[in-house]
Simulated assay, not measured.
Amino acid sequence: MHDRMPMAITPDRWDEWLDPRNHDVEQLLRLMAPPVDGSLDMYAVSKAVNNVKNNGPELLEPLPPEK
């Protein structure tokens, strides 16, 4: 897992997260809880994702399993 993994918020909490009037740091931090088990797929991808010059759908392709 990459250390810059994006935050995952369920759709029912989007309004609360995006509300510009919400300045309650504790409440907002609670929204940043880890994703529910089974809600993310993790797989190895090419190291090409490490270069900001690279862009395209091929960066999302899983690498073949290691033998």
Rank of each mutant, 00 (worst) to 15 (best):
M5T: 12
L40T: 05
K47F: 06
M7K: 11
R4S: 11
T10I: 03
Q27V: 02
M5S: 08
K47Y: 05
M1P: 06
P57V: 07
M32G: 09
D12N: 15
E58K: 10
D3G: 13
D19W: 03
V25P: 03
M5G: 02
A44E: 14
K67R: 09
L18C: 14
Q27P: 01
M7S: 07
T10S: 11
D3K: 10
K53D: 15
P34F: 04
P64Q: 04
D12T: 04
M7I: 14
D15L: 12
L59M: 05
N54D: 11
D37V: 02
M7P: 00
L60Q: 02
K53A: 14
P11G: 06
P57Q: 05
K67D: 13
P57A: 14
P11C: 04
L63C: 12
I9M: 06
P11W: 09
P65Q: 15
L60K: 04
E16H: 02
P35C: 03
L59F: 03
A44P: 08
L63D: 10
D3N: 12
L18H: 11
S39W: 04
L40D: 00
H2M: 07
P11R: 12
N50C: 11
R30W: 01
T10D: 12
D19C: 05
N50F: 07
Y43Q: 10
A8M: 14
G38E: 02
V52I: 11
R4K: 10
D12G: 00
V25W: 10
M1F: 03
Y43F: 15
V49G: 07
A8V: 15
D12R: 08
M32C: 15
N50E: 14
P35Q: 02
M1S: 09
V45R: 06
P62H: 08
S46F: 07
Q27K: 15
N50H: 10
V45Y: 01
W14G: 03
V45H: 00
N51T: 10
A44I: 00
D24Q: 12
E16P: 02
N55A: 09
P57G: 02
M7R: 12
K47P: 06
P6R: 13
N55T: 07
P62Q: 10
V52R: 15
M42H: 12
P6Q: 13
S39R: 06
R30Q: 14
W17R: 14
N51I: 06
G56P: 09
L63V: 01
I9V: 15
K47M: 09
N22V: 05
K53E: 14
K47H: 10
G38T: 03
P62S: 08
E16N: 01
D41W: 07
A8I: 12
V52S: 14
V45A: 01
A33K: 08
V49P: 02
D12Y: 01
L29W: 05
E58L: 04
L28A: 04
P62L: 10
L60I: 00
M7D: 06
R30S: 08
K47I: 05
L31W: 00
